[in-house]
């Protein structure tokens, strides 16, 4: 027998068991009494508990062989909570076993309505419960924040004025610019640009090649326009340039011709050449028309005229096609 009275174990190890050499339970800690549906004292340990790790244990002899190693077990009756334990021989043929809930402490506390006094004062179980609860509160707050930020991002994108692929302005920006001209009533011109043969590039070389072409075209437009002009990708392979102030038709024609020339320069993608051209319709608000919507329609009609005349050329509203002919375009 040990020198210390066995009762002290109740306080410092409330989940301990003392086993007789026969395998019967002589003493069990108060917390174990709380979780076991059967009376413990006098019962055979292996009839109340099932030891399944490191391997199944079927007799007292095998149980004693686990000495000093972590065993895993569960109650045979009731909630069958999993437990961890360690056995030490008492030198009299019997053994002392101490148990713990380990990672299952959360469910054990819930299942058996345990309180702080069911754990040894040195046990970290309550700290662990505290941490789990506090961490989930913090995680919730974090998750909420992430959800809100995501919503804010979507909203910001909806309000954005930039076309993400090309870096040009987008349709929404165009509306704002036109609205400004509407209010300001200053003169301005519109150039409606539609790429020719773009679909072929997309179909034969893939969307990545198409995107490359669009970015290339966007760069050309950015080069061509002045600071106060606005280049917009209105969708797909369709672009619009808003020129502020009054501009001579000759100058607009030069710009359109230049654009077509440069857009027709082949772009290399993955060792292959992408060749496109552009049809352009031009409308100016010189002739007393300064309703932007009307001007948009005129530019669109002029573009249609260019397309109809064989593409790869520009056209002023109210005039026939002019400038570049389709000769230079090499379609794929």
């Amino acid at each position: 027998m040990s020198i210390l009275p066995e009762e002290i174990l109740h306080l410092i190890c409330p989940m301990h068991l003392l086993l007789e050499p026969s395998g019967h339970i002589r003493q069990a800690g108060p917390t174990l009494h709380k979780i076991s549906p059967e009376p413990l004292e006098g019962a055979l340990f292996l009839e109340v508990f099932e030891v399944f790790r490191p391997r199944a244990v079927t007799c007292m002899k095998q149980l004693m062989q686990t000495e000093g190693r972590k065993i895993r077990l569960r109650l045979r009756g009731g909630v069958r909570t999993q437990l961890y334990g360690v056995l030490v021989a008492d030198g009299q043929g019997g053994a002392v076993i101490n148990l713990s809930f380990g990672i299952h402490v959360m469910s054990a506390v819930r299942d058996y309505a345990l309180t702080s006094s069911d754990f040894a004062p040195t046990d970290l179980a309550v700290e662990m419960l505290y941490l789990v609860e506090a961490k989930s509160a913090a995680m919730d707050a974090s998750r909420n924040l992430n959800t809100r930020l995501q919503g804010a991002m979507v909203a910001a994108e909806e309000r954005a004025y930039t076309d993400t692929l090309t870096g040009l302005r987008n349709r929404r920006a165009l509306d704002a610019v036109l609205e400004r001209f509407k209010r300001g009533r200053g003169p301005f011109s519109l150039m409606h640009i539609d790429l020719d043969f773009f679909k072929q590039v997309n179909d034969t070389l893939g969307h990545a090649a198409g995107d490359l072409v669009l970015r290339h075209v966007a760069r050309i437009m950015t080069d061509v326009i002045r600071k106060d002009d606005t280049a917009v990708r209105v969708g797909g392979d369709e672009f619009l340039i808003v020129f502020g102030g009054s501009m001579q038709p000759e100058r607009l024609g030069e710009i359109a011709g230049d654009l077509i020339d440069r857009i027709e320069q082949p772009v290399s993608y993955d060792g292959r050449e992408c060749r496109v051209s552009a049809s352009i319709g031009i409308a100016t608000a010189g002739g007393g028309i300064d309703n932007p919507d009307e001007l948009l329609e005129q530019a669109d009609m002029a573009l249609y005229a260019s397309k109809r005349a064989g593409r790869a050329q520009f056209c002023f509203f109210g005039e026939g096609p002019a400038g570049e002919g389709p000769t230079k375009v090499a379609s794929k």
Binding site: M106, V109, R110, A113, L114, T115, S116, V126, L129, E133, S136, A137, D140, A141
Partner: peptide, 12 residues
């Protein structure tokens, strides 16, 4: 006060 958290507990 119960050690086990009730579901849905925990506010800001």
């Amino acid at each position: 006060f119960e050690l086990a958290a009730s579901s849905g507990g925990g506010g800001e």
